[in-house]
Each structure stands twice: as C-alpha cells, then as structure tokens.
Design a binder for these strands. Structure first.
Length: 649
DNA sequence: CGCGATCGCGCC
DNA sequence: AAAGGGCGCGATCGCG
C-alpha cells in the first residue's frame, strides 16, 4: 500500500485494508481564514492510521517539491510595512477531489468502527461538512482526552506529548499551522505522523486508563465528546443589529473618554500601554506625570524585588484596584472609565465582529451564529474551558454594560433560551464530603448556606442573621474553597487583618468539620505514590507538590488539593448534566438543542411550543434520578425561559 | 514578521 | 519566599 494516496485505485486498496480493522485514527489538515473553526474550514489533507498502516490523502495541496523562489519580505511603499511574499513551488502532483475522497471513505466513517483522533471533535466536525452535516458515527476515541486524564498537568498539545512519550521530535517547522506553504512531501510526512502518533498514544492509553481506575471517567468523557459534536454545530445566535449598535455606541463613548484622559493628563499617550500609563501616573510632575505614589507591585515587580533589584515605576501595578486608591484624580477617574469600556469593546464586540482596520481581523460570526470550541480537556480540575471565543467569561448582567453584552446572545427565531444553573453547587459538594455540620444540615433544611454559616458562626438563629453577617459568611465559604488567608479575607470583608484572623478563628471553632476534612484530605493525598485526590467520579488530580520541600510551593498544592476536589467534582456533575441533556437533545433534535455550558449552567434552545416539556427535560437532566444520587445532599437547578441570555439571574 | 512573556481583566 | 482556586484573551513589548 502506498503512504500517499493519489488515485482512486490506491484509495480503494487502502480502504480495503482499513476495513479489516475495527478502529482507526483520522486527522485533517485545514486551510482558509477559519481553518481553526471546524464548522467553517476547508479540509485539504486527511490522514489515517490503523494496525500496520498510515496513509495521507491530499485533496488540493497547492505545492510540489521543487522550490522555484524563496519566501521573502518586501517593503510596502504605501504602508511602510513589510509584506510577506510566500515561497513559490512547482506544480503539485494530480490529487483526488474532496468529494471523491469523502465518498470513498463513507463506508469507514459511517461504520461501527471506532474513529479516533487527537482532539477528534475537531476532525469529526470538520468532515461533517462533506457529509451534508452528518457527523461520522460512534464509537469514538480521543488520544488527547485520554492523555489528559492520565496526566492533567501537561496540557501542551500533541508534539510535547510525543517528545515526552516517544522521545521523537517531529515538525520543528510547525507545518500543521499553515500546511499550504510547505512542499508536498513535507506536508505528507507531517500528515502521516499526525495520524500515526495518535494511534500509538490511544492504544497505549486505553490499558493505562483501566489500570489507573480511570475507565469510568473516560467513558463519561467519551459521552461528553459526543455532545460536543452537537454543541459545536449548534453554536449561539447573536442579535446582529444590537451588536452593531453597541459597536457604534461604545466606539463613540470610548472616543469621548479618550479625550478626557488626554485632557486630564495634559498629554497624548497610548492608553492601552501599561508602560505609558505608569509614566503618566507615577512619573513626577516635572516630567509631566501625575506624581502619584504607587502601592502595589506587579508579579514581575515582586520577582524583581525578590532578586534584590530595585523596582522602577514600571514595576507597579496600574490595575483597577491600584487606581481606585486615587479616586478623584481626574486622570485616574477617566482611566477607570476607559478600561471598563475598552475591555468590553475590544474583547466582546471587536472580538466577535472582527476589525477591518486592525490587520483585517476576521469576524467569527457565521450565519448570525458564533461557534465556540468547548474543550473537555481544557483544565486541570476537569471543568470545561472554552475558546474562540471564550463564552465562559461573557460579562454578567449585573451592570448596564454587562447586560448589554450578555443580551447580545439570543434565542433562534421561533425558539426560547432555557437557562438553568445549579444552586451553590460547589458548597453542596463540600457539604456532601463533610457529611455533617452547618452546611450539610443547612442544605437538608433548605436554609440558605451562607445564612446557615452565619447562624453557626455568630450564634444567632437564621432569622436574626443580618445582611452583613451573611456577606461575611459568604467570604468564609470562598476562603474555605480557595484556601484564602486572613489578608485576603480582610480585603473581602473590608476589615482589618486582625479582625479577619479572629473571624477565621471563630469559624475554625464553630465549623471544625471543614478544617478537619481539609487536613484529612491532604494527609491522605500525600500518602499516595504520586500525591493525588480523586473527584466524585474518580477523576485524578495529581499534586506532586504536596511533598515539595519548599513550604510556599507545598502550601499552594495544599490549597489546590481541597479546591480541586470541590471544583473538579462540581465539574463532574456539570459534565454529567451535559451528557444527560445531550442525550435528550439527540432524541428531540428538531426542537431541543444544547448551546452552551458555563461551569454550573446550561443554555438550551427550545422551540416555543415546547417550552414546558423542554424545561422539564432540562430539570431532569440536571437534578433528576441518576445525578441527584451522586451527592448525599439535595441539589437544585433553576430553569429560566428567556429571549436573551441576560434575562437569566 | 512570528512568538512568548507580561499585564490586566472578564467569568464561575 | 509567598500570601484565593480554575480559565481565555486583548494589548503591548522585547526577542530572534
């Protein structure tokens, strides 16, 4: 069999070989402005691997192997910048067309054979476009998800993983990043290795997952993966009219604020530059600065100080917290306004719409929808991450501007958004593990958790708890989950450090179970050969630093220990809910679609005539039998019916 | 130009 | 020697 497939006959022969095996890896190389967006990209190579074979099928690679002229740069007389002139190669060999290739592959792609990839969601969604939006059928395998479960601390992609596992460094030139500028045989070699290594990795990982007791969580992740295939194609519709309106409004507003900044500062500077901001704020008045006395060092500045170097004005933070100390200074006030508006405009408006003037940054909205990529392997704790764009950090609707941005996300025509979130899921997970005490009993009694804390800590009945007492108790919950110390607690409570310390002491006395559990958890984790904890579904969080010789490193690992158990277990529950809702949506694809998930929240599209049924199903997915049973304390989920995402909460 | 580090900041 | 967990991303800046 040939490695590089150029004719129908060669392809037919290869397919016959692959048909003899019950699983195979496939990998796509993509081109186009949106090569990274699987619903939009164009596939120019598909490579495949199975027992004893690895092939690459080009479908429009533009280059041959003979270099006719080198890549260079040429100064553009108009802009004064350098334009990249790509290399020119001779003509490539005659290749099959995508339609021919995908038709021939159909019996493999839509068979019961396992389709494996390294980040297989991307490859599956990329090829679905060539099958009339039908995704190749299950079962699937993902060497990236498997590798991540086996070592969540290494989120570095395929290449470092291959170096670590096989000691083979391939693709020094980053061919996959821009396959179309490379010569034919180099692209072919790269494509083949990109299939071969995932094949090796997957087959190595499966028995390891079993022996490490990770099969259950792997099977959950494979179900998550199936749901992500639907979510990737559903995406999230935007109110385009409102988006353009917001673009105009914020652009105008920012212009006004910018001139306010300049006027107050008495000079024109780049407001986005932290360096220049430092000069304006901390520089002395003789040199045109405000002469303010900086307080907080940046992390880099602290490092410098540690290394006994003298910090300069550039080592002091210019973030909002630092600026707030100088409220009333006209430069500071204008800067704070600027930062708020600029953040939202650049990240959430220009980030989606693109900017023609700024290097032709393309829009990532397609047919009125945005298609974020949820990465099930994106965090060390087991939660999802989300990118391109990250819809897990869309401003919350607690400010006017936040409401406007979140309000851009709307239901499709004829649909409503069902937005459901778990109530205090992390504290409930914590209470589950504690099995006693104010939190545990509070959740059974239906008392608000922070009120229950306040009642215990202040020794009053729940009815007598004041707003301030409840707020302080909320801080205690965060302090527990994150491992915050007195300084941070003081900041949060707006009290002195001594008061915060006393408060923490009272907490330690009145809710000893919290601290006893933390100590027990850390001690047990430390005893393992590789120190680790397991989340509620058995996911591992490896914390080798729990036995580190340096105390601050060890203490950081100790904070991560409890936090990972809680955050990771809550993440497990969320992934279960995603899977359960995914199943229900697949049963009712013409009126129910899962769109987004944000850690403890699901956003679903539901056709207007099916709201009641949809809400019931969502409720069932999140807290029904089979998921409630995972925790010993009751869990709650609140379903809201909205036209805009901002209407929830 | 491309890349990575840094700062800063949005969310849960 | 540090001082609250987990993310992604825009902008700047220095480097090769």
């Amino acid at each position: 069999m040939r490695n590089v497939i150029l004719t129908k006959e060669e392809l037919a022969e290869a397919i016959e070989y692959f048909k003899k095996h019950d699983s195979f890896v496939f990998d796509v190389e993509t081109v186009g402005d949106h090569r990274g967006v699987p619903t939009q990209n164009q596939v120019t190579w598909i490579s495949m691997a199975t027992h004893g074979a690895a092939i690459a099928i080009p479908m429009g690679h533009p280059n041959g192997n003979v270099l006719l002229s080198k890549a260079t740069r040429k100064k553009n007389k108009e802009t004064g910048k350098f334009d990249a002139i790509p290399a020119v190669w001779d003509a490539p060999p005659a290749q099959l067309r995508p339609s021919q290739v995908f038709e021939a592959l159909q019996p493999l792609m839509f068979s019961e054979r396992r389709k494996i990839g390294h980040n297989v969601v991307f490859d599956l969604v990329s090829v679905a476009k060539y099958y009339d939006n039908h995704v190749p059928t299950r079962p699937y395998g993902c060497s990236l998800v498997a590798s991540w479960l086996l070592d969540e601390n290494r989120l570095n992609g395929l290449k470092p993983l291959i170096v670590a596992t096989y000691g083979h460094k391939y693709d020094n030139e980053n061919v996959g990043k821009k396959v179309e500028i490379h010569p034919f045989s180099k692209a072919a070699r790269y494509a083949i290795l990109d299939a071969k290594y995932p094949w090796l990795l997957w087959n190595r990982a499966v028995p390891q997952l079993k022996s490490e007791g990770l099969s259950r969580v792997m099977s959950l992740e494979l179900q998550v993966l199936e749901t992500l295939l639907d979510m990737a194609r559903t995406g999230a519709p935007l109110d385009m009219e409102a988006l353009h309106q917001l673009d105009g409004d914020l652009t105008n507003e920012l212009e006004d604020i910018t001139s306010r900044v300049y006027q107050a500062a008495g000079r024109i500077f780049n407001v986005n530059s932290t360096k220049q901001k430092s000069e304006v704020l901390w520089g002395d008045q003789a040199s045109g600065g405000q002469g303010l006395a900086p307080v907080n060092l940046t992390p880099g500045g602290r490092k410098k100080k540690r290394e006994r170097a003298k910090p300069t004005i550039y080592d002091y933070s210019t973030d909002a917290e630092a600026l707030k100390k100088f409220n009333g200074n006209p430069v500071v006030d204008a800067l704070l306004d600027y930062q708020e508006v600029n953040k939202l405009l650049s990240t959430y408006v220009h980030g989606y719409l693109g900017v023609a003037s700024e290097g032709n940054k393309p829009s990532i909205i397609f047919n009125g929808r945005i298609h974020p990529s949820f990465q099930q392997y994106g965090t060390v704790t087991g939660r999802f991450s989300c990118a391109k764009p990250n819809l897990q950090n869309v401003p919350a609707p607690n400010t006017e501007l936040g409401t406007k941005v979140r309000g851009l996300f709307v239901a499709p025509q004829g649909y409503k958004l069902l937005v459901a979130d778990y109530g205090q899921i992390e504290l409930r997970v914590m209470a589950h593990y504690l099995g006693r005490g104010a939190w545990y009993e509070g959740f059974f009694a239906g008392t608000d958790a922070h009120t229950a804390t306040a009642s215990a800590v202040y020794g009053v009945s729940p009815e007598e708890v004041t707003k301030e007492q409840r707020n302080n108790s909320k801080t205690l919950a965060f302090a527990t989950l994150y491992g915050a110390q007195a300084e941070t607690v003081a900041k949060s409570m707006k009290s002195t450090v001594a008061e915060a310390e006393a408060f923490l002491d009272v907490h330690r006395r009145t809710m000893p179970e919290v601290y006893e559990f933390r100590d027990w958890l850390i001690a047990r984790a430390r005893k393992q050969e590789v120190p680790h904890i397991r989340t509620i579904l058995g996911r591992k969080r490896r914390l080798p630093d729990l036995v580190h010789g340096t105390s601050w490193i060890r203490e950081k690992a100790e904070r991560q220990c409890l936090n990972s158990l809680i955050q990771g277990s809550a993440g497990d529950l969320n992934k279960m809910a995603v899977v359960r809702m995914g199943h229900l949506c697949r049963q009712n694809p013409d009126w129910l679609n899962l769109s987004l998930t944000v850690h403890d929240e699901l956003v679903v599209h539901c056709r207007e005539d099916k709201i009641e049924e949809g809400s019931k199903l969502l409720q069932q997915a999140m807290i029904g039998e089979g998921i409630q049973g995972v925790l010993s304390v009751p869990i709650t989920a609140d379903v809201k019916v909205c036209d805009r995402w901002s209407e929830a909460k």
